[in-house]
Design a protein around this nucleic acid. Structure first.
Lengths: 256, 256
DNA sequence: AAGTGGTCTAGACCACCAT
DNA sequence: TGGTGGTCTAGACCACTTC
C-alpha cells in the first residue's frame, strides 16, 4: 500500500531510509555508541521511527558500506570504534575529498584563461584554452601543498561570476560541485613521488630536488565528462596521503 | 512465503542477489555492454533470472556502489564506460588490493622472526618479536617495488606451515586472508614521497636520494585488530598509485 | 500512456547466537 | 527458546522520461 505516513508530502526532502541513516550516523559520531557498543536492533528502530524492517535495513546498508557499523547475525549491530582519535586526514569518499576540514586555502593566482593544450585535452575540451587557478594550502601557518586547478573556461567564468573562489573557500571542487548542483560523481587520482623543481621548492620551502608527493585528480560529472583537473605538490614532512578502506567493496571473490 | 524456488537447498552457495550481481559484473567486464549501453531493465531481469524485483534491485545496489553502472529514473541502467582501456592499477577496494593482477612477486628473504619493537607495537603485539618477510615485485622484467611485510609470529608460522609464501604468490595479504578465512575487513594506507636510501636505491635500480613513492598499509581483521603491516617503496617511473572513486560513499552532505 | 527506476510495506523462512 | 540479522517475495505508490 506504499507510503504509510498518510500525507502526500509535497516536497519529501529525503527518503526515510536516508533520514534514518543520517540520524544514526549523527548518533554514532556524537559518541552515543562509542567503544563498540551495540546499536538498537532492527525491531527497536522500526518502533522508534515507525518504519518497516526493510527500510531500517536499507539505512543500515549505508552505514555498513561506510564502515561505521558492523553487523553480526544472531548478535546485533555494533559501532566500529574508530581506531585512533579519528585520523588526521582520511580520504575514503568523494565527499571527504571535498571537505578538507581545518586547513586554510590562499589563492596565489586568480582564475585566468591560459592556453594549455595538454590540460585542455585531459578535460576533453575542443579548444586549447583552459581556466587556471593556483593556490596553496596552509595548516598551522605552514604551507603543505600547492595546487593548480584547470577547468573548462565556461565553468571558470561561472565561478568568477558567482564570486565563489576566494580565500574563504575550502575546496575548489566543492565550489564546482555547488555550481553544477551536485554533479560530481567520480574522481581518478594518481599519486607519485617527484623531485621538487625550483618553483615548487620555493613554494613549499624545500630544497630543489627534494622528494615531493605529487597528486593528480581528475573529477567527473554524472555523464562521465571530465570537469576539473587538479594537480598538487605536497610537502612530504607536513602531509601524507591517507586512505582508509573498510569492508569489501567490489567483486566478492570466490572462497576456495 | 519466503524462498520461492521450492527446494530447501542444503548448501545455498550464495544469496541470489549476489549471484545476479556477479553474473552482471561478468557480462559487464566481458564488454557486453561497453560504450555506456543500456542494461536490461529490472522487469527483464526478474523474468530472465526468476527473481523478485527487490532482489534484482539489491544486485544493482552493489554494482552502483562499485561504480560499474549508473541508474537514471525513467531512463534505465547504463554501463559506465570505464574511461581508459582499464587503468594499469586501480586500487579502490580491499579485494583489488589483494589481487595485483599481472605482476610477478619474488621473495628476497623468507619469513623469519626478528625483534622490531616499533612494528610489533603497530601490530599491537605483546612481545617485540615479529615475523618479517621481504620481497620485490616485477613487471615486464623490471623491479617496480620492494616490500617488507610484518606479521604476528604465530601467523607467520601458520603461513610457513601452509607453505603459502613462495614466488608463485600474488600477495601476502591474500595468503593471510585465506589463512584467516576471509577475515580481512579494513586497510589504512599512507602514501608519501621519500628519498631513496642506498639499500632502496640498489633494490630499485635508482640513484641514492632520488624521490621514491612510499606506501604503508596496515590491514585489520573483523575485530579491528591489526593483522599485517606492509611497507613498500615504489620506483616512481614504473609505478604510480592510482585510485578511482565513484559515487558518493559517505555522509550525503546537505545541499544548500 | 507506457515504461523506467526509487521508495516503502507486510509478511515469510532461514541460520546464527545467547539463554 | 527467543531474539538477531540475512534473504526473498508480492504488491503498492511515486517521479521521471520517452513516445
Amino acid at each position: 500500500m506504499g507510503n504509510h505516513d498518510g500525507t502526500t508530502r509535497v516536497g519529501r526532502a529525503q527518503p526515510a531510509h536516508q533520514r534514518l541513516s543520517e540520524a544514526l550516523r549523527a548518533r554514532l559520531l556524537d559518541g552515543e555508541f562509542a567503544g563498540g557498543d551495540r546499536l538498537p536492533t532492527e525491531a527497536e528502530l522500526e518502533q522508534e521511527y515507525g518504519l518497516s524492517r526493510q527500510t531500517v535495513r536499507r539505512a543500515f546498508l549505508d552505514l555498513v558500506a561506510e564502515g561505521l557499523v558492523r553487523r553480526h547475525p544472531g548478535r546485533g549491530t555494533f559501532a566500529v570504534h574508530s581506531g585512533a582519535p579519528r585520523y588526521a586526514r582520511t580520504v575514503a569518499s568523494i565527499d571527504e575529498l571535498m571537505e578538507w576540514g581545518d586547513s586554510e586555502l590562499e589563492v596565489d593566482e586568480q582564475i585566468s584563461l591560459q592556453s594549455d593544450p595538454h590540460r585542455a585535452n585531459r578535460l576533453a575540451l575542443d579548444s586549447p584554452v583552459i581556466a587556471l587557478l593556483r593556490y596553496h594550502r596552509k595548516f598551522g601557518g605552514l604551507v603543505f601543498g600547492i595546487t593548480e586547478v584547470a577547468l573548462a573556461p565556461s565553468l571558470g567564468e561561472e565561478l568568477i561570476e558567482a564570486d565563489a573562489v576566494g580565500d574563504g573557500l575550502r575546496t575548489v571542487i566543492r565550489a564546482v560541485d555547488d555550481c553544477l548542483e551536485g554533479a560530481i560523481a567520480g574522481v581518478e587520482q594518481m599519486l607519485n613521488a617527484v623531485a621538487a623543481t625550483p618553483e615548487i621548492a620555493a613554494g613549499l620551502g624545500l630544497g630543489v630536488g627534494v622528494p615531493v608527493l605529487y597528486a593528480e585528480r581528475l573529477f567527473f560529472d554524472e555523464e562521465e565528462r571530465p570537469v576539473e583537473l587538479a594537480t598538487t605538490y605536497y610537502h612530504p614532512d607536513r602531509y601524507a596521503y591517507r586512505l582508509e578502506l573498510r569492508g569489501r567493496v567490489g567483486p566478492r571473490r570466490d572462497r576456495r
